[in-house]
Structures are given as C-alpha cells and as structure tokens.
Design a binder for these strands. Sequence first.
RNA 1: GGGCGCUUAGCUCAGUUGGUUCAGAGCAUUUGGUUUACACCCAAAGGGUCGGGGGUUCGAAUCCCUCAGCGCCCACCA
Length: 876
Amino acid sequence: MEFPSKFNAESIASKWYEYWQKNEYFKSQPDAREPYTIVIPPPNVTGVLHMGHMLNNSLQDIIIRRARMRGYNACWVPGTDHASIATEAKVVAKLKAQGIEKSSLSREEFMKHAWDWTHEYGGVILEQLKKLGCSCDWTRTKFTLDPDMSASVIEVFIDLYNKGFIYRGFRMVNWDPEAQTTLSDEEVIYEERPGQLYHIAYSLVDSDEKVIIATTRPETLLGDTAVCVHPEDERYQHLKGKSVIVPIANRQIPVIQDEYVEMEFGTGCLKVTPAHDVNDKALGEKHHLECIDIFNANGTLNAHGLDYEGMDRFVARKQIVKDLEARGALVKKENYTHKVGTSERTKAVIEPRLSDQWFLKMEALAQPAIDAVMKDRSVELLPEKFINTYRHWMENIRDWNISRQLWWGHQIPAYYYGSGKEDFVVAQHAQEALQRAIEKSGNTQLKASDLKQDEDVLDTWFSSWLWPISVFDGIRNPDNPDINYYYPTQDLVTGPDILFFWVARMIIAGYEYRKEQPFSKVYLTGLVRDPKGRKMSKQLGNSPDALKLITDYGADAVRVGLMLSAAAGNDLLFDVNLCQQGKNFANKIWNAYRLMDGWEVDAQLKIPTHAAEGIEWYENQFQKTLQWVDHNFEKYRISDALMSIYKLIWEDFCSWLLELVKPDYGAPVSGALLQKLKTLFENNLRLLHPFMPFLSEEIWHFIADRKTDEALVVSSWPKQQNFDEVLLANFEIAKEIVGGVRNFRKEKQLGFKDVLTLQLTNSDEPLAFESAIVRLGLLEGMEYQNRVETQRGGAFRVDKLSFFIPLDEAVDVEEERAKIDAEIKYTQGFLAAVEKKLSNERFVNNAPPQVIELERKKAADAKSKIAILEKNRKAL
RNA sequence: GGGCGCUUAGCUCAGUUGGUUCAGAGCAUUUGGUUUACACCCAAAGGGUCGGGGGUUCGAAUCCCUCAGCGCCCACCA
C-alpha cells in the first residue's frame, strides 16, 4: 500500500486504539515477569478532562508504555472517584435547577438521583482518556463506590475503630454552610481578604465606663459569653471581677483574664465567643464559660440571634453594625486584611462550629509513613523539595475529621440503639450490629428497627487513601494473587495540591494495611497555567478545551506539547503553540518516512561510501542519545528525554542522515541501504512510541506487515550498546566543515547547484567522514595541499584545519588578513589566560592532575593553532 | 509568624552535584532559500557582566553570607 502524503491524526488514533484494545495489549495478569504497576489518581466520576488530567495521564502513559516495551508486566489501573462533596453539590444544583430541593427528598430518593447522574456522566472522563491514548487495563476499572471497594472502606473503618484509632467527639470543626457539612482541615483554604476591624463599646455593669473590644465579626457578639483581657494589662486591672453588657443582646457577661490575649492587638480587649471560634472555645473551657451557638446549619441566625433570626450571617453583620452605630456603640471601624477560611469545594466562608463528628487519630499511624520517606526512602518524592513539606505536615499531623453530613458516599457503619452518647456499635451490617448492640447493652429485647445507622458518610479521601490496595482487593483478601503480585506499585503521578489529602494518607494506609509503601516514586507535577502564568480556571476562561485540542492537533501532538515544558514539580505555562510544535514534529516524522518510502529501489546497488559513513555515525549517535534518554527517564526528567528524541529524529536523522544518504533526484536507492534506514527508523519509532503512540504505531505498520504480537506497543525498547566517542567527535568536525562550505556559499552568493572543490591546505592527512563532507557540501572531491598558493578563491577554517575553495574570483586579501588577525588575537588572549593559570603555583599544586593536563593541552593546542594561522597569514 | 523554593538569552527552562564538553536548549526574532519528503520546511545569524553586593577557593552560574524581588506550604492572633 502506498504511503499517504498526509495523515489524519484522529482516524489513526481511533484505528489503533481499537486495535490495541482488541488484542488486549493493556490487559495484565500476574505472570513470571516483573510487574510495573501504576494506579491512576481516580478523577471525579462526573468530571471532564481538563489540562491537569492531560498532563498527569500523559506522563503515566509514557511511563507505563516504556515499561511495557522494556519487558515488564505493565499494569495501569484506571478508575474514578465518587468525590462525595463535589458530586453531591452538582446533583443538588441540578435538582435545584429542576425546582427540587434536597431537603424535600428522602435519602433513598436523593441517592437515586445521584446514581442516575453518575450513570449518565460517569465514565465520560475515562472515554476521554482513551482519546488521549492512555493504555490502561480497562478490565480493572474501579469506582470508589463499587460494592467491593465500599466493603473495603467499611472494613477499614471497623478495623480502625476496633484498634481505637477512630473516635466520636464533640469538637469545633470546619462547617461549610453551603454544602452543610463539616470539612477536614485540609479542605479549608485560607484566603487573604479585605475586611474591617470593628471597635465596639461594651458598657460596664453599674458604671458609665465602656470597654472597647475589636472584632472582625461583630455579628458573633450575640454569642459572646465573656470579655477577656491580659492579667498584666495595666489599663484593665480595675475590670477584674466586673461584668459588662453585650450591646444589642443586653446580656451581662464577665470580664475574665487570660494570658492568651495579646495586649498590643486592637484594644487589648477580646470578646469571647466559645461557640464560633477555636481559640474562644479553648478559653471558654478553661474559664467554664457558657457556649451560645447563634447559627443554623445553613449560616443563618437561629433563635439566639434575637431580632436577626433567619438572617444570613453576612446580612446580619451589616445590620448589626448599623444598629451598633445607631446606639453609639460602634467606636470606629478600620480597614483590615485578614485570612478567611473558605471551602475548597463550594468556596463558601467556613464557620467554626461545634458538633459531634468522627475522627481518626493520626499521630501513631503516621510514624511509619514518616520513616518511609525520611529514613528508609522507600518512597521517593520528586522533586525532592516536597520532602520538607511532607515532613512538616506529618510531624504536626492532626486528627482527621472523617465524617461528612452528606449522603453521597460510604455511610458510616455505626448503629445507635439508645439515646446515650455511647449507645452505639460499629458493624459491617445491620444484622451484625443488632447482635453487637444486644451484647453491649445487655438488652435482649432490641429489634432491628430499634437500631438507627449514623446518617453521615465518610470523607471521600477515606476511600481514596486505600486506592492502591483496594483496587487489588488487598483489604478484604490480603493474600490474593493480584495484591501480592502488583503491590507495592511503582509510580504515582499526581499534583502537589493533594500531597496531604491523598498521597500522605495512602502511604499511611499502605503501612497500616500492607506493612509496605504503596508506591516507590511519587512524581508531583506542576500546575498547568496559561502563558501569562495565571492559573487555568473557568472564570478566566483561559483553559483550553482539552478535547478540542486533541481534535485540532491530534493526541500525539498535544502529548508532545505538554511534555515539552513539563519539568517535574514546576508549574507549566501551557501555550497552544507547544501543540503546534508537536504537530509540526508529527508532520516531520511522517514526511521523513514518506521520503524513504517513495524512493525507487535497486536491490543490486551497494551502499555508497558516504551513506555507509552516515549510517555508522547515526548508529553511534543513536546509542549516545539512547543512553541519555534512559538516564533522563530514570530521573523522571521526561521532557528532557523527549527533547533528546526530538533532536535525534529531527536533526540527526532528518537533517543530517537523510540529507546525506538520499539518492540524486530520480536515481534509485540501494536496497541494502533502504533496508538499513528502515531498521534505524524503526528504532526511532520505538523511542517515540511512549510519547506519540498513535503516529508511531501507524508508521510501524507501513514499514512492514506485522502480526498481532508484533505491534509497536508490545515491541521492545532499544537496548544500550557501547558507542564510539571519537567517531562522534569526528563527525562533529565534519558537520562544521560542511557548515563552513555552506557559509562560504552564502557569502559568495553561490547556489547549491554550483559544484565546488574543497582544498585542505594545512594537512595531507585524510579527514574522517570525507565522503560525507564531500556529499553534504556538494563538492566535487577533496584535495590535500600543503600550502596555499596565491590563487583565486576563498578560505575558511574549522578549528586547526584550513580550507580553500578555488573560485573564479580574486581573494580579498585584506578581508582574509583581518579575519585571521582577529582569530590570532582571540587565541592569544585565550593562551595568555591558560598560561597564567599554569604559572600559578597554587593552581599547579592544588588542582587535580587531569585538570592540569587539560590546561597544558589547551595551551599546546592554542600555540599550534596560532602557528598555523600565522603561516596562513603569510601565505596570503 | 515559621518553613521551603525560585531569580541564567525576548519567552519557557537545562546546567547530573567546583575544573574538558560551560555559559546551553527549545521556541520566538532577523537574514537568505522552494521544479527534486516536509513552508507544519531548509540553511544561517544575532542575543545573557548567570537578580545586586560581599566572601571561600588556584578556580564559582555551581559553595557560604547578605540584600532585593517572586512563588509555594504550614500556623488559632481577635
């Protein structure tokens, strides 16, 4: 079949993806080979592909494809996350758009809507990953709410509860009034926001005196139960034992003293609202203060809010400020920038709130995970700079609030049988719970209907943290063949934004449930930003449509574009120009093969000398590049690896080798040469395949008919061999000579059709790659002359070699002389510097011998070069 | 407030751990080029006192100190 002049990226992509799937190349089962396992960071089940996913998954695919080619049993496990709060928020919004309030639905009804939504949009993102070329083992696809995955989560909860790590506590937690659930500390994002600091006067009981407090949240005064000053504050000594009146609320509250108060801040006088501030809570406990909660779950004020009941907290704030002003209680307000906690998901301002929640004790669990990274290095973070961040978080780890007041997720397997705080049991299912409850309470009359399961679900991350284990069913069946074979996995590729949310916790779970790290390398990608360095976001509209990019440029080109600028851990400024560069590269590769494929072949022809030289050079150059590529892969410098391959193919193969070996127009090519070239090109495709899987596979099948087990995707990665450095260095000189000729042509305005003669004037030693030089410089042949006779033509030099090209044109002696003079001057300066160094005793005494030797050689070379130049100058 | 990191060509970044190969790459720019694979191309060129200052060393983009700017993470100052 004739090789087409153009290719359609989209159609070859779908063709080959189907072919790969049909032949089950991505499917993995335990066997005698060594495994290479990656578990995907499961995207949200209802999510759509964005730039971050593309970056992430391209990297994983590149790594896993190379591993597969290197003979590992490659297994990339895909899946999705139920993303409790994010998905629930979407479902709530959708229902709201249909005029349905979540509060009007039963749990079962809501879950039905949520599942419908999941079935409708779930897995869309996985289909999109296929468009990107991801070679996942789709037969292993997991969803965190699958029955087996859920069972693992519940089992772990029960296990940790039984071990005493999980407890129920009434604590100050982060409340998201929008989603109406608690959040873990990690889900709260603190943002600097302009606000105001209000100075409010509280009247002293039985006195005209006022006490001024400063607050950013005046509405919480309704929940005030004390005013606090520093015990050593001279200004407030007389307040000891007194009480003040909360304005508006007209309640009497005591003045307390505590060293917690910073005298310098504001007025040095602090209002204490134990129900709505973590510090105030601590103060309240210490001083046995009352706790007045003024908010409803949705952020409106409750009955304690008096006249403001039912108002949203921010509306109430404004109103209260107004009312304080009217009463003359507002002393002043000043602009004040402070940090405000917001919900990672809903962006709502977080409200500290006291409530009953489930917590996981982290300190003891974290210890092995600290050692794994800090001491044993069984988990490596890339780039290393994240180790410090990791350590700091781990060493100061706090208990994890794992309960959420949501429905979409794993319902907490706690069952209440009475009204007492401790009247509950934890069990796999209701039946077991009943048995336990009877045992625990001693009440044999308990019936199933007396038990009520906890309404809350578990934090999404409480299922994700088991992912590398649970996808292989290693929780419920800790000895099954899959988990034993595939665990621990090799690499995890994800963003640093979920280092704590997910990565650290997976390491913790790995040690708790497998006594081993879940992965040995964590590649932390950077954020994808736009060319101006801004974060990509929907609001800014600066995020390209991932699928449109694939349609416009082709998946291969997009992958290349992403990889070209994606150093590990560095943010990546994504510019569609990079995709264009990728597309150009694809075009180049295509045409390189098209050139070879179009030649007329003469099987009888021997390989010409110049071509043989070129082939030998390229084989060495390939090896040198391969070594560098492998090295970069080992260091996870994927973009460097790609860049070397890019240059190998574009410059070394196309610009040098193909230009060298291509037959004269219309002339046939030697069959042996073409065969050789195709083999070399196949090796190029092998290197290329992880980056550009579709294009490389397409050409691979044009080069030869391949059986199903001979597809590129399952072929082998090239093996390293020794290469000849001297030969490569000689070719570099040859390139420079060719460059010299090309420059000469440009200077003399000669066309490429003018055939010239090149004379080497200061040596009669034949040059390496002479035939190649002659061919590439379009020269008639090369002459060796020991001296330059004054004749018509022009000269140029490469290092210590001097060349002359005879031409029917007088030599511009002045110009030549000036050029040589400049070169002599430069070389003399260089020589002087080297000699100065060599005459420095301390250098000679201290520098290592090879460095001194090197300097001596540099000096000798410079001297001989000067001698040659002077000789040339004289000969003019 | 604590910790970490960054600053090299117009842009994005390498610089493998003080010494050939060190001042580089890709892109962009400029110049010249198309009957002979590719204009999604070819050939060439310009461009940086390696953020400032100081120090260590025979030798510093590389190590130390300091200043400036930027970024990230953590932390309960109302």
